[in-house]
Simulated scan of single mutants.
Amino acid sequence: MKNPIAPGSQAEQVGRLLLAGALVLFLPLIPFGAYLLYPFVILTTWFHEMAHGLAAMLVGWDFQRLVILPDGSGFAESFTPIEAGRLKRAVVAAAGPLGPTVVGSLLILASGRRRSWRPALYALAGALIVSTFIWVRSPVGVIVLPLVALILVGIARSDRPNLERFTLQFLGILAALSMLRDWNYLFTESAVIGGRRVLSDTGAIEAALVLPHWVWAGLITLLSALAIGASLKHALKEDGSTARL
C-alpha cells in the first residue's frame, strides 16, 4: 500500500503547482471557464503594462497612463524625450514581456514560505489599487483591477493558509504561462492594438538595438524560463523545510 502524501510535504507542493498549471491551461476550454479566468487575464496584462510604465519612470521618462482593452490587450503611454537613447528605449520595451515573469517568479517564491503568504497578497492588492488610482485610464481596468484586489484581500483575511498559498501559486503560474498567450505577439515585429498598428515589444528592441526581433524574443523566452525554473526550485526547497500546516 502506498504511503499517503503528507500535508505540507514537497510532494503536496508539486501537486498544487500542477493543479494551478492545469487550471490556467484548461479552464478556458470548459463552459464559462474563460469568464472565470478573465479577471486574471486582465491582471497579467496589468503586470505587462505596469512593467513598461515603471521601466519608463526608472529611465527618467514620464509614465502618463495605462490602458487595458476589453479583449485583454493594453498599452502604457509614457512621454518619451526626442533625445532618448537607444538603450533606454530597449530597456522600456523589454520590461513588458519580462514583467509577468518577474512577478510570477516572486509570487512562486513567496508561496514557498508561510510567513510571506499574507503579506504578498496584501502587497499585490495594494499595488493594484494605487496603480488604478494613479495611472489606469480605461473602464475595464478601473472595474476589474480593484475587483481582483478585493478578492486578494478577502483571501488574505480568510484565515485559510492553504487557500492563501494556492492563490499565490495560481497567480505565479498564470503570470509565468501568460507568455504562451502572447507568443505570437512576442515573435512578431508589429501588431494591431486599439485599432492601430504599432511595433511589438521585440520590434521596438530591434529598432533600438539592430538585431532581429526574433533574436530578442528568443532571449526573453530563455531568461523567463530560467527565472521561473529557479523560482520553482527554490520554492519547493523552502516548502520542504517549513513547518507542517
Rank of each mutant, 00 (worst) to 15 (best):
K2S: 01
A11S: 09
Q13P: 01
L18H: 08
A20E: 07
A20T: 03
G21H: 02
A22Q: 12
L36Q: 00
F40V: 01
T44D: 11
T44A: 13
F47A: 09
F47C: 11
H48W: 01
A56Q: 03
W61A: 11
D62T: 14
F63C: 12
V67T: 10
S73G: 15
E77M: 10
A84E: 01
A93G: 12
P97W: 05
S111V: 00
R115L: 05
R115G: 00
R118I: 00
V130Y: 15
V142A: 04
L145A: 09
R160H: 03
N162S: 06
E164W: 00
T167H: 00
Q169K: 00
L171Q: 05
G172E: 07
M179L: 14
L180V: 08
D182C: 05
L186I: 01
L186K: 02
F187M: 09
T188N: 04
V192I: 09
G194C: 07
R196Y: 08
R196P: 13
R197D: 11
R197N: 11
S200Q: 09
G203A: 14
E206K: 06
L209I: 06
L209M: 10
L209G: 06
V215T: 14
S224A: 14
G229P: 12
L232C: 07
K233N: 03
L236N: 07
K237H: 12
E238H: 06
D239K: 13
G240F: 14
